[in-house]
Structure formats: structure tokens, C-alpha cells
């Protein structure tokens, strides 16, 4: 595989739970609990999991939008978690984020031009005229009429806003984009437009994607490799084809079988998981999945499964796989 762009090791983010008048810390929500992976240059790593699995927290911790509790994040060999404020600010040019909600992620009082110029102003890049021409070319690149530059976000549809969000992330010519559910809030017919746009941009600008989503079909479509998270921990990591054709972890299997297929004649063996996701404040002992696992054995209740390479490039954390 190509050179590593970013490598995450043992990343943890524990949010303290405070209780009572004295606000004593009575426990921690282990939102992200020891996650590690590497993403190669130009690669797309899909991160899937259900709500509460820590995928969004992980994405934001990598960018230090949330300060992680421990671990390292190496970007081109440099650990960014101990960078100074000024160095981190410079580093932010290299890595950007696109958010899920195209309504909340654009400042309603900024015109499109202002939204897109802001990164250049913050980093003191270019003069005014160059900035404006860059805004126009970015708008054109993401498929919007450059004449829309002076309009406000509320004049656009969800899909158009998401294009603006993507253009903003591209303004500084980053190498890495963290895409946090970028199409989840969009209409079906618009989703595919944005997915195609993301693919094209990746080819054109040699971008590396960390694609966070809950929709498995979308992740399958866009990713080279896929990481499955459960309760803040890694369940399985492999290239897309192996994960979808030969999942090893029982959770991945259940997840895949739960996806409704838009074909009335395909009837699959469905694994219906019992119960709900346990609280990340109080994760089960042993394997975090054992409470819902259809094949759990005694060892699963006692020991945390090791992260191991079951097949070439196919990692899993399960005693039984």
C-alpha cells in the first residue's frame, strides 16, 4: 500500500461524568477507547458503527476539535497531539472536516463568499482579489454557480449547502479530509451527487478521506478499507471487499444482515440482535459485544478479545472468529 499519511495509536477520549452538588467525577464515558489504524495517502478509510460507537468523537479527536485523553495521532510522521497552539494552527491547513448537518455547519450570517474566504483570512493567504477568484473557482469546482457567492446559506437547498461545506474544507488545499456523515442528512437523489463529487475531488486533488458514516451501503461505495467500531472500540478492520463478502466479527455480520436491500426478491438470513447498545459509561466486561452477541461463549464474558490479524490485512477483535 501507499505511504502512510496518518497513523492513529491507542486513541482514547474519556468524558468525565460529574454528579451531585460538588460535581465529583463519578465515572467516565469511554467514547473512544483505544483505537488505532493507519490511512495511506489517497486512500479512503470508512468508519462505521451505530450511534454512540464513538465514530464522531474519534474524528473530532483526531483534529483536536476535542482534546483526546491519550494516544498519538501522527500526521506524516509527526505527532500532532503535542503540537503547540501555533504549530497546530499551521497543521490545520493540512486536515479539514466536513460535517453532517448542512444547516448547522454554515454560519447563517455569512455569505457564501465570506464563509469560503474566512480560512484564507485566518491563515493570511493571498490578497483580496485572489481570494475572491479562488472562491469562485472553488464554487465552480463543487458544482455551484460562482454568481451565488454573495448569497446566504438559507437560500440554498441541503445538497447545495453540503457542497459549500465541502468547498470550505478545500479552501486551504488540505491533504486529509474527515467526512463526518457528509451525506446522511441529504435526500436520496442528492446523496449520490455528493458522493460522486467527493470521488472526483479525491482523484483530482489526491485527497485522503476518513469517511465516517452509519450507512453501510454508502461506506461500501466510497471506501477502500473499512473500520467497524462498537462501543468506542475496534471490532473489525479490513479492505472493503473482504469486510462485505466475508465479515469475521459477529457484530459486523449482524450489521450487514440488518441493512434492508432494495430488491423485494432478495430474502436473506437475518441476524436480529437482541437488546440495545449498552451504555459507554458502563461497558460490559470482557468483549463489549458479548451482551448482544448471538454466539457469545464463556471466554467472551471474561476476557477482552485481542486485536489480531486473522487474515492478511484483515483485523478482528473476537475470540471466536
Amino acid at each position: 500500500m501507499s505511504d502512510t499519511l496518518i497513523e492513529v495509536r491507542e486513541l482514547r477520549k474519556h468524558f468525565p461524568i460529574r454528579r451531585g452538588v460538588l460535581q465529583r467525577v463519578t465515572g467516565h464515558v469511554r467514547a473512544v477507547d483505544g483505537v488505532g489504524f493507519r490511512v495511506g495517502k489517497g486512500e479512503t478509510l470508512g468508519v462505521v458503527g451505530e450511534s454512540g460507537c464513538g465514530k464522531s468523537t474519534m474524528g473530532r479527536s483526531i483534529l483536536r476539535l476535542i482534546e483526546p485523553t491519550s494516544g498519538t495521532v501522527e500526521f506524516q510522521g509527526k505527532n500532532i497531539l503535542n503540537l503547540s497552539k501555533a504549530d497546530m494552527q499551521l497543521m490545520r491547513r493540512q486536515m479539514q472536516i466536513v460535517f453532517q448537518d448542512p444547516y448547522a455547519s454554515l454560519n447563517p450570517r455569512f455569505t457564501v463568499a465570506k464563509t469560503l474566504m474566512e480560512p484564507m483570512i485566518v491563515h493570511k493567504l493571498h490578497d483580496k482579489a485572489t481570494r475572491m477568484s479562488r472562491v469562485k473557482s472553488l464554487l465552480e469546482r463543487v458544482g455551484l454557480d460562482p454568481d451565488y457567492a454573495e448569497r446566504f446559506p438559507h437560500e440554498f437547498s441541503g445538497g447545495q449547502r453540503q457542497r459549500i461545506g465541502i468547498a470550505r474544507a478545500l479552501t486551504l488545499n488540505p491533504k486529509l479530509l474527515i467526512l463526518d456523515e457528509p451525506v446522511a442528512a441529504l435526500d436520496v437523489s442528492v446523496q449520490s451527487q455528493v458522493l460522486n463529487l467527493l470521488k472526483d475531488l479525491q482523484d483530482e486533488f489526491a485527497l485522503t478521506y476518513l469517511f465516517i458514516a452509519h450507512d453501510l451501503s454508502v461506506v461500501r461505495h466510497i471506501s477502500d478499507r473499512v473500520l467497524v467500531l462498537y462501543l468506542g472500540r475496534m471490532a473489525e478492520l479490513a479492505d472493503t471487499d473482504s469486510i462485505f463478502s466475508d465479515p469475521l466479527h459477529p457484530y459486523t455480520k449482524a450489521l450487514l444482515s440488518a441493512v434492508p436491500i432494495p430488491d423485494p426478491d432478495v430474502r436473506r438470513e437475518r441476524i436480529i440482535l437482541k437488546g440495545d447498545l449498552p451504555s459507554p459509561a458502563n461497558p460490559p466486561k470482557g468483549c463489549p459485544f458479548h451482551t448482544r452477541c448471538p454466539v457469545a461463549a464463556q471466554i467472551c464474558r471474561e476476557q477482552v478479545p485481542e486485536w489480531r490479524e486473522a487474515k492478511q490485512g484483515h483485523f478482528v477483535a473476537c475470540h471466536l472468529a
Binding site: L65, I97, A104, F110
Partner: peptide
Amino acid sequence: FEYVQAARAIGASSWRIMFVALLPNIF
């Protein structure tokens, strides 16, 4: 709102976020 996080992500300083991004929205 995520646009505040977006402002942090592009490297804007706290002062800039407060006075440029937030202030017009609470006007």
C-alpha cells in the same frame, strides 16, 4: 452549532470565533 467547530477546524483563534462568527448570530 457545527459552524463554530468549523471555524475552529480552519484554525481561527478564539477571539476571532467570538467576535466574527458568534457575535452576529446573537445580535
